[in-house]
Design a protein around this nucleic acid. Structure first.
Lengths: 178, 178
DNA sequence: CTTGACCTTCCAACGATGGCAAGGTTTAGC
DNA sequence: GCTAAACCTTGCCATCGTTGGAAGGTCAAG
């Protein structure tokens, strides 16, 4: 690519067109400042969740405090378990000064319902499992109500129905998988 | 492929090498009998969770009641939220007559902990979200504590309680292996 | 000039599943 | 026997959010 004329240091004070001082950041610094990994910043850009970053002559992406603001918003919404589609809507509401709070509340309420449904599913599983565990002697003998429950031999199956366990919320599945 | 010599019907009685009668099933019938989709049966075979099915001359996979047994076990373990790795272990314990129930109990206990941790996370999110929702007037005006909570404007927060989900624990780029 | 930290793009993978396509096989009806 | 339907086969793509790596360009410091 083209060579950058000015060998300006990153994260240094810049003067923009309006003469206002801004801190310019490369993607790594933006990542550290926002809590969103550089990988994900590029991903969000590629999927249109955030606008395309301006580029330095070198091709490096360039971020301002405003961008960091947005990234932090996204990060918090994701931490709250919103899907990218929901975040897309939240972002556009956030940036629209004429938004009716009604729409935000509705979005959040829908998400809360999803969360509560998921919680109920997990609790049902956990309750059953803890009962099975409680009834397992857990010593060296091979008989075990947990295995019995999963096998055909047992008439009192607790997990008979193949009810789906969708993991729609990455902030949650993150913790234990991998 | 080679033409099948005997045009035997599926799901019909077959005579195996030892002259023992068995009910033979194609993958579709096995799927219906076990509750595991044909797709997933092939997937489990490909990933080594179940052994490679025997094949008819036609190339069709062939399943016995024993295989259905195993598939049902897997289905129930999955319904209980066990990961494939955990199911792999459960399966080998199930098929080992000298298993100590202790190991099964330990596996189940670990999974229960994971479940409870997930439930706690989701509940923390749901609690915060429902508080935010409760404080949102939800009418046509634009001000909204939900959006405020996701933004940097800390001073304008609707209520200043220890609303965790903030930058504190995004937990998004921590990969806790198991 | 070299080194190393940083950036770029592209490509692959995860887990569990669905879907589709192109082709082979079996079965039922005529 | 012929045909159509219902089945099976493999293989590849897509999901969703995220991480990893490879191959290569850029930049600041020694």
């Amino acid at each position: 690519m083209l060579r950058c004329i000015a060998g300006e240091a990153a994260a240094v004070m810049r003067i923009d067109a309006r003469g206002i001082e801004e801190t310019g950041m490369n993607i790594g610094q933006a990542a550290r400042a926002s809590g969103v990994s550089a990988k994900m910043i590029r991903y969000y850009e590629a999927t249109g969740l955030i606008p395309k970053a301006t580029r330095a002559y070198s091709g490096y992406r360039h971020y301002t405090e405003h961008d960091i603001h947005i990234l932090r918003f996204i990060n918090r919404a994701r931490a709250a378990g919103f899907s990218t589609l929901q975040i897309r809507k939240l972002l556009s509401l956030w940036q629209n000064r004429q938004r009716p709070a009604r729409e935000v509340k509705q979005l959040a309420t829908e998400h809360l319902s999803e969360l509560q449904e998921k919680i109920s599913e997990l609790e049902a599983i956990a309750d059953t499992l803890s009962q099975l565990i409680a009834h397992c002697h857990g010593d060296e003998r091979p008989d075990c109500p947990i295995l019995d429950n999963f096998s055909d031999a047992d008439a009192t199956q607790a997990f008979a129905e193949p009810r789906r366990m969708r993991r729609a919320h990455p902030s949650v599945h993150r913790t234990s998988s991998k």
